[in-house]
Design a protein around this nucleic acid. Sequence first.
DNA 1: GACGCCTACTGAACCGGATAAGCTGAGCCA
DNA 2: TGGCTCAGCTTATCCGGTTCAGTAGGCGTC
Lengths: 339, 339
Amino acid sequence: MKRPTIADVARHAGVSKGAVSYALNGQPGVSEATRQRILAIAAEIGFSPSSAARALSAAASGAVGLALCRPARILGIEPFFMALISGVEAELSARSYALTLQVVADPDAEIAVYRRWWGERRVDGVLVCDLRTDDRRIPALEQLQLPAVVIGGPGGTGALASLWSDDAAALTETVEYLVALGHRRIARVAGLPDLRHTEIRTDAFATVCQRLDLVDAVTVWSDYTGEEGGRATRRLLSSAQRPTAVIYDNDVMAIAGLSVAQEMGLTVPADLSIVAWDDSPLCRLVHPPLTALGRDIPAYGAHAAKQLLAVIGGEPVSRVQDETPHLTPRGSTAPPRGR
Amino acid sequence: MKRPTIADVARHAGVSKGAVSYALNGQPGVSEATRQRILAIAAEIGFSPSSAARALSAAASGAVGLALCRPARILGIEPFFMALISGVEAELSARSYALTLQVVADPDAEIAVYRRWWGERRVDGVLVCDLRTDDRRIPALEQLQLPAVVIGGPGGTGALASLWSDDAAALTETVEYLVALGHRRIARVAGLPDLRHTEIRTDAFATVCQRLDLVDAVTVWSDYTGEEGGRATRRLLSSAQRPTAVIYDNDVMAIAGLSVAQEMGLTVPADLSIVAWDDSPLCRLVHPPLTALGRDIPAYGAHAAKQLLAVIGGEPVSRVQDETPHLTPRGSTAPPRGR
DNA sequence: GACGCCTACTGAACCGGATAAGCTGAGCCA
DNA sequence: TGGCTCAGCTTATCCGGTTCAGTAGGCGTC
């Protein structure tokens, strides 16, 4: 089956291909009658303009890039990315943009991908995930002048546009809630320490614990996997001053932690309260269902995509704070035993 | 920062852009010394050929399309797709192909996307997921002559290349294993009924149950979500002839089923054995850990991508059976109580 | 009725590569 | 020394759009 080109449309309509281009793009230069005739013919023969040809002359590819820098075993297990992608996609496809995805091994490989995408003009802009402290990707993108929106922050995003949720506020609210329940020994199983949002949560945790005089507060680091989350929990629960509540930086580690607690003979929430970050259906599947910090992740992705399209469209760079994660209390949190 | 073009490389090297093209593509027509000089200059100024220009003259975009037709809430929760994507991506990026992703609402929208991609020459081929019975996408793709690999089968894939795992064999093995443990009343919580692999599993289940004379075998349909999986389990466990073992078509429903069973006061595995399809780290996180039918999903994706690139490269259409899912017994299966 | 002006188009250049066809000079041989 | 071959390049064309610089023709105007 031969693909129709603009010349085919022009021939059918008995006009030049310039006229067809004007008609299809809503430009002035053709009469309304001719425009309608051309549109009808284009629809009839199933014409879609070649993205390559359009990209070549318009110097815009109509695609947005997303490079994911996490090992496959974590990517698969965390619902976050797929939810984010589906939101990004919804916004992009509504505006006829394509999403180009690439999984990379490390930040340097990611920078190389950005450089290549830029040189190949393959994408008009990129979404940057998993902001790190002193992130080398930021200056690299600034240098390339490739439109970008950093999903993460605030801070550390250089001159790039960014979108973040107020994790500090969410964490503070969570600690205050646990303290209100009567907890004094609160632990936190954090994600990868070099991620900026881990740092923000860690700082907020330290601040609120100091303010509320929680001297036994402790943070341990993990890598978002269930195995590590379980191990971290086992260490915490084996210590002399066992925490009565644990906040996990993702849902998978929280579920693993719940398993470990039950395996060690503890009852959740009587002996141990558990809070998960990134509420997901998983949190509702386990017993007891997990109290979680949730937010609308597809909407987060959609907002990031919308922001990126604005930057690509030449609008000034914006830094936007999105919805703050909100705490949904479920069965995994309660006052500690003996209070 | 200006993007270097082939003309820039040519100017620096003091040759024509034709010579640069020959040098970069390993074509004869330039001396080895000149080729090396051109390669060095291209690397030095950071030249990558414009994908648009290359696509325009070579009539190949260097991209592969993947349209996902599942609601966001299911996409996010099931690790399957992300694992598949990471495998696809590994194979594609090793061969410098890009992956274009689109989330669609229904099969007709998916066909429209294929038609558009084809007209826009945006992708050189597509991977088709979630094969259905009498799948309208198959004749549409055949008509477009768009290279495609169907992930699913066997059968129902028309003249397209396909890749599948022998779900019938895996299901048969699972039922035989449960029967060997002493189970006679086995139920199955199936996925969406119009998916081809659901049909294949359902047929295999009926066949093996008849052969082994399991008169109480029952299949109920669900939609892969935890909510539905839980509801289906509740119905099954409330019936007079309660099953002693349940096979779930995905991990999320199995975990939900486990929760429901425990909530109803049943002990797993003593009162109820549970088997999950699609082994994932989630299965190891719950208590007891779930016996599961696993396979290497990233490898599955990589094989599909490799097969698609072969079809794009003009090799004959192939139908390939991939690794059969294998049963990993864990704590959720045991002989039924009273045996 | 000559002039300007506007509308509705056409023709051609251009984007940045790939590639077929043409050219050139060196080397070889008769 | 002239002719032939061939490696090693250059030149020109093409891919399918967008867009700019014309241009033809109709219309109003003084």
